[in-house]
Design a protein around this nucleic acid. Structure first.
Lengths: 351, 351
DNA sequence: AGGTACTGTGGGAGCGCTCCCACAAGTGAT
DNA sequence: ATCACTTGTGGGAGCGCTCCCACAGTACCT
């Protein structure tokens, strides 16, 4: 059949209207079929689906976005420089979980870095243009203005890590406090008494909570607080080395180290080994994250496993819900959801 | 409730029309100012810009995409599983270059994985929907159908790595052949005579070209071909270990190894050390990529530096050009561009 | 019989922009 | 004076979709 309807643009992509003509129905009906509305008879649905297949029809996203005022896209915002994104398994695990969960949907995922001021500028512009239906915010720092911006623009968002009082965003977190406690209790159970802690960056909520768990586990076991046993790190291997060096000079008699991340534990391990301490004989070592590093370390590292992929999945679920029942602003902020997922201590040879 | 559609003029985002009214001009004029057309008088431009600022106007991307039939977005397609993306510095460097170059434009970058069949399925759907103006394809395998799909859909695309005869896509590459030659010539110049090569996956064009460079450098220096000195790797550390083990058993008298990537060189180093070979005294080692691994290895690794960031930049430049002068299909395939960027040998203690 | 409810369907009215044509006003050559 | 350009501008006509109202048809009440 040469030209059906005499349209000159035979090479272009088929439109809804062309599908409708082909199936012998109206535009609205095709739209209903495409969007899975139940209010279509089986016969009609079949006819439309046949026409769609024959024509190779693919909906025009831009037209849909314009008419329906939604984009079917969500952004995964990483408020870190790209370097850290690649260096830390946390992000890749998270991305994997998010990717897996979102691939069941029609939603598109955008990966966005907001490490530099310039990138943040761009992001703000981007959000203001409402180019996404929702935002996933991972690894937020204490003073970050992003959560506020998001609720101001009334963009549905889910944040990873504990939600602070100021933020009215839905959040997903793992039990940092409990994870740290279980690590320390494990070390105590192994007979360790002078347990040091290398913290993460304390402007990251999770790192603070791990410190709390560490402190309270010791306190509950009747150990006095000893700040010489706590040394701040910054989640990097180099930071782990520095902190371990400091700890050894302050408390040469320590018999265990609980590091706030596997990467820092790796740094600590180097320093311990150079100082001639055997692991776990002289010093027991426990990390956090249960990343690939932990499994491949020599000796294999005991570590607190965070269900990061599951967190990613949970974030998507919550976000999609929030986007779906987008309510009028009046009812906002009343029933924010929050999910806290349990951690698990994976015991290996280092402790 | 209200009969006239609850969506009033009041609270929503300002539109072009509102800006026009405010500035006392027509819709078309505002559009011209927004899009930087020169055909606007200075006075009018200033008035419009003031109105834009006062109203906080941000163009609606969906409307623009629909009307102009472009999306202002390009996809960076990584035809690998996410795992490899994170494991290999190549990708992060590339992403950095691409990100840097694109941030000067209004374009948006989408990161897309196409490692699994499912992901490829999604990507094909995605491309068919023309949701991007162009595609950057990095690390393409020999049998990959993606390039064909792209030219079939007439989507502007730039590929990293040499373009094969079948592909009619613009490409950006580094001089793999020359890089390999310079590595081998360097080793020859240091007096090495039995130089082994651990290849990358040979279905990756670049790996094949490096092998060619290795072979021809030896041949030109009057060395007979010796296939026992060539062992296939797969770009992984484990693959490097395996290949090195095989090489040592085939040619225990080798005095140099040129590895097709730093990661494989790291694997080779382990095996050499375990076999009691000193580097560089007994065996000289040269890698490829000049990644962080090379600098931090013990001893620091001589490596061929690829200008990966520059390649990323060049890819964006070429792609934007191609998108800009999108020609009628008739003239396609005639003047495909191609850029080949030079490599540089970074000599360190391992050779 | 008329009433009330639902189900399925068609198509008008936009969504906010770009494209392009019309046209006024100015400039210069004939 | 006319003609032919140029420059700057306004606004109509869509882009391809979703939303929603109208309405025919059927089913089940009173």
């Amino acid at each position: 059949m040469a030209s059906h309807g005499g349209r000159g643009r035979s090479g272009g992509r088929p439109t809804l209207e062309e599908v409708a003509a082909r199936a012998g129905v109206g535009r609205g009906t095709v739209s209903r079929v495409i969007n899975g509305s139940p209010r279509v008879s089986d016969a009609t649905r079949a006819a439309v689906e046949a026409a769609v297949a024959e024509l190779g029809y693919v909906p025009n996203t831009a037209a849909r976005a314009l008419a329906a005022n939604r984009t079917d896209a969500i952004a995964l915002v990483v408020p870190e420089p790209e370097t850290r994104f690649f260096a830390e398994p946390y992000f890749s695990d998270m991305l994997r979980g998010v990717g897996a969960e979102i691939s069941d949907t029609e939603m598109q995922l955008l990966l966005t870095f907001a490490g530099s001021d310039r990138e943040r500028q761009r992001l703000a512009q981007y959000l203001a243009a409402h180019r996404v239906d929702g935002v996933l915010l991972v690894s937020v720092h204490a003073d970050d203005p992003l959560p506020d911006l998001l609720s101001q623009l009334e963009i549905p968002a889910v944040i990873s890590g504990p939600r602070s009082a100021a933020e009215s965003l839905t959040s997903v977190d793992s039990d940092n406090y409990g994870g740290a406690r279980s690590a320390v209790e494990h070390l105590l159970g192994r007979g360790r008494r002078r347990i040091a802690h290398i913290t993460g960056r304390l402007d990251v909520y999770g790192a603070q909570r791990r410190l709390d768990g560490y402190r309270e586990a010791l306190r509950d076991a009747g150990h006095p607080a000893d700040d010489l046993l706590v040394e701040p790190g910054d989640f990097t291997e180099e930071g782990g080395r520095r902190a371990m060096t400091a700890l050894l000079s302050h408390r040469p008699d320590l018999d265990a180290v609980f590091a706030g991340s596997d990467v820092m534990a790796a740094g600590a391990r180097q320093v311990l080994r150079e100082a001639g301490r055997r692991i776990p004989d002289d010093v027991a070592l426990v990390g956090y994250d249960d990343s690939a590093i932990a499994r491949h370390m020599d000796p294999p590292l005991t570590s607190v496993r965070q269900p990061i992929e599951e967190m990613g999945r949970a974030m998507i679920d919550l976000l999609l819900t929030e986007i779906a029942d987008r309510r009028p602003p009046a009812s906002r902020g009343l029933d924010r959801r929050r999910a806290v997922l349990p951690t698990e201590l994976v015991v290996r040879a280092s402790s």
